[in-house]
Design a protein around this nucleic acid. Structure first.
Lengths: 137, 137
DNA sequence: GCTAAACCTTACCGTTATGGCAAGGTCAAA
DNA sequence: TTTGACCTTGCCATAACGGTAAGGTTTAGC
């Protein structure tokens, strides 16, 4: 039998929030679900699967736009795994870039922090590094 | 002599954009600079130093709110380096957390991507991992 | 049957740090 | 004087939500 869940139950089942689900619907990621006479959204098991799919993809850091593409591929029996992998590789490249940026910040700042005495004196390598060259003329 | 720069020149000198400078002013990070009769903002060397300070701090990933605190400390001769370092340590912790999240995603997704054949077949470990347990009944 | 709690609905604002655009005023050089 | 390069304000857009308000619905208990 078709089990239909209201948005709150669907949220719990998928690990999302009702707010997120409405947001995904509004941004075109999800088809509009049927409604009760009172206007309540009702989700069937197929849509629940989609919700869980989205939640997993979000956990991997895919953007909603990327997830749109992934959902399309998922539902296309004629998809080529090549296309899926390409999306993943692109996302991996983005992740690697962000990590590199953060590690760069981390390294620079850690060095400065290590050189800061952290006592009651006003002198601190961190501020010194942020301040523009003073050209002590 | 006091060299006064218009916002475009100040932007170039500090590595920011005019838009950013106006935004920092509007969000209370910078004091309102004097204006010409025509309403053009004019920046002196002290404010240019602040702009460069902000730009450096942004490069290290500090939020505008954190930079507000750093600026305060910078301009306080009675500051304690302890306070500066505490801000830096907090930011380092935030950075480390983000890196950890990204590395977690990276590791998970890389494993899946490695298991994806990337050919014309529809089968792909990535989609399989995103799809909820199918309970092949 | 009635009431209160726990749902649901839409709509709008706030977050963060910008970029973009429009409509208009200003300034300097040719 | 005209043109181009400035400057001004103001409003919209981004990504992916969370919060809140004002209101309708359903359910459980009494």
């Amino acid at each position: 039998m078709a089990t239909l869940l209201t948005i709150g139950a669907a949220a719990k089942a998928s690990g999302l929030t009702a707010k997120m689900i409405r947001h995904y619907e509004q941004s075109g990621l999800l088809q509009k679900p049927p409604r009760t006479d009172a206007g309540y959204r009702l989700y069937n098991s197929q849509q629940l699967q989609q919700l869980s799919f989205i939640q997993q993809a979000r956990r991997l850091g895919f953007s909603l736009s990327e997830i749109g593409s992934l959902l399309q591929l998922w539902q296309d029996p004629a998809r080529e795994s090549r296309a899926v992998k390409q999306l993943a590789e692109q996302h991996l490249a983005d992740i690697a870039e962000k990590i590199a940026e953060l590690q760069n910040m981390q390294q620079l700042l850690q060095q400065l922090a290590d050189s800061c005495s952290a006592d009651s004196s006003p002198d601190c390598a961190i501020l010194a590094a942020l301040a523009p060259a003073n050209g002590l003329k």
